[in-house]
Design a protein around this nucleic acid. Sequence first.
DNA 1: CTAGGGTTAG
Length: 666
Amino acid sequence: MVRALLSRARDMLDGIPHRWGSAAIASSSASGHGAEDAVAGYVRMLGAGVRPDAYTFPSLLKAVARGAAAAAEVGGAVHAHVVKFGMESSAHAASSLIVMYAAMGDAAAARALLEACPGATGGAPPPVMWNALISGHNRSGRFDLSCRSFADMVRAGAMATPVTYVSVISACGKGKDLLLGMQVHKRVVGCGMFPDLRVGNALVDMYAECGDMDAALVLFEGMLVRSMASWTSVISGLVRSGQVDRARELFDHMPERDTVAWTVMIDGYVRVGRFREALETFRRMQFCKARADEFTMVSVITACAQLGAQETGEWARIYMGRVGIKMDIFVGNVLIDMYSKCGSIERALDVFGDMHNKDKFTWTAIILGLAVNGRGKEAIDMFYRMLKASLIPDEVTFIGVLTACTHTGLVDKGREFFLCMTEVYNISPTVVHYGCLIDVLGRAGKLKEALHTIDEMPMRPNSTIWGTLLAACRVHGNSVIGELAAERLLELDPDNSTAYILLSNMYAKSNRWKDVQRIRQVIMEKGIKKEPGCSMIEMNGIIHEFLAADRSHPMSKEIYSKLETVLIDLWNAGYVPDVTEVFVEVTEEEKQKVLYWHSEKLAIAFALLTSESNVTIRIVKNLRMCLDCHNAIKLISKLYGRKVIVRDRTRFHHFRHGSCSCKDYW
DNA sequence: CTAGGGTTAG
């Protein structure tokens, strides 16, 4: 095996450095800048006539190993150079080679090199080489191999060092193998290695990673010396177990905080959906003059995406350029998502176009972005371009593609994609995919086929499925299937306010006013409450939140008086309030008031009050937009010549010149 | 060989 590796390596020696230099750079450019720069630097060094020594190869190999499998040829070529310059016997070079092969997924090559390593006393390979093997497997994410290699190491009689334990314990944590982790823990205690900070940290992290926070905390509290990593592991574990507030408490008690600690805390808020606190924490981080990096920015931009905070997201992008944080593929992907979720699909496309490397996340993000922003045909074109670029779509990509079909009314395409997902890509559809398919059929008015599809589903339909069908029945005024869907939906979720609202809308659409009355009665009797509507709007980097009839905003007085003048303008332009979706049983007059104080109307009034007329108004709403607000905003966009984008629970509404991109179909 | 952090949907 080693002989084969070497002969492969020697084959590459011809024409070095020039021919290899350019080929290596070309192939490593696909795997990130680290490897590319390192290889380019190495080639320049050779060109300048400097001979590499024992210190050259470890860093070069490390850079290559960081890259993806695309760098395999480069790895082989660097191996050839190690041999060429007689560095095979350098322990540093040898261990780096083992890490590199294992990290690139070539476990056999790594193992062969290890076997060929003579120990200090001759015979068995020394512990450092085993450590290299385990660490390399960790980097490729093959934690099972890390653990197996550790077992082999023990069997071969090599003496485990603290580094060995750190690596194998880390593998247990990342691979979620708590049982093995506990066994290794016992072993560590047995061999009298404690107290060792690095091993201690690895153990704390392993327990935290495996969700055993009690064990992690007991260990952490028992540590005589702690480092930042000890704290960060515990904070990260608390976040993962949903205890963000406890994590925050610990975070505030840290003696000092570095980039990673801040990032864990910011990301913690993002994970539990507390996006505003994530941004507040980021602001505090800057106030504390802590350095952010690309990891931090991914979490920050994700928070902006969820909040629809485009100004802050844009600022984050510029900030990165200013302070020299590199835009890697993760940042690019999340920027596409952020712009898409802010309704700025053009900017998302700009980012997409500027990205040199695109992975399946990149393509999926742009497909979804185009789809939800109502540009389904382009989304589908992107899907074909993705295939041409040899990327394999996953289950999320298909959600994007099916969503595109829904929004563009491409029924046949929708069915076709649904089939090809299973038949060509071997992805079994989840209930979400069925939801998309039912949406495609329902929106096109094929309600019977949609119902049939539900009957044929391999899994039990959930409330979303019935809700989707019910929504389609409302749009098409089919109260027969609609009633059935509502019935099923209420069986699963008896207090689902949406079911009552949609059912009542449907009756209203087919002029069944008695039934509308009856539904209201039921709502009253059962005391069903609509989930409170909430609208967010960002203005000058500050996020303002409005609930219905909310008076808590500092500018509340001005907002309500602005709203009043806007309403007068609307009435003069022929607006008639539509109370069909109001569910409190009050007088007609009060119903209108309820409507006027809907959260998105308050947000609009606030925006009209505080922004220039050329600024697009962007609102994010937690629920589906109501009929009356939709009418009102259409008119506002015409009367005041404003562009308004509302992102509701399922889609975007781009209002312009009195009409909406959803074509009143939502 | 040497700890801790990141992306898409619902």
